[in-house]
Write a protein that binds this DNA or RNA. Sequence first.
DNA 1: TGAGTGATTGTTAAT
DNA 2: ATTAACAATCACTCA
Length: 118
Amino acid sequence: MPKESTKSSKRKAVDKAEKAPKAKAKRDPKAPKRALSAYMFFSQDWRERIKAENPDAGFGEIGKLLGAKWKELDDSEKKPYIEQAARDKARAEQEKSEYDNKKADSAGSGDGGDEDDE
DNA sequence: TGAGTGATTGTTAAT
DNA sequence: ATTAACAATCACTCA
């Protein structure tokens, strides 16, 4: 059985389940961005289905419908999406790698080699 | 070393 | 461009 060592706490954040006051835009100028989550891939595949059966459904309907279906799916059904998420995660790792690389590089040289206009 | 925190992903549609 | 529920996430940071 998989050992569940530390998973006894981080719950608090999830447990809160409070209404999102508002999503933040971003903090770092070149945020390496994270990886997409299974839900992202799931939505990409389902969004068309949801709209197909709910052409009038706006965002609220789709969002709730999507989430409802997502939970309806079996772990095996989500697996493919999770795998995609895992794949993207690896991609994100590379992104971070570059970000970390640049970061370390610019840190030493005062002036940033490449400066994006922003 | 462990804990948890926040930031991020994508959809649609309106503003 | 931004925001909003919907869900996952999980890499980073700190003491």
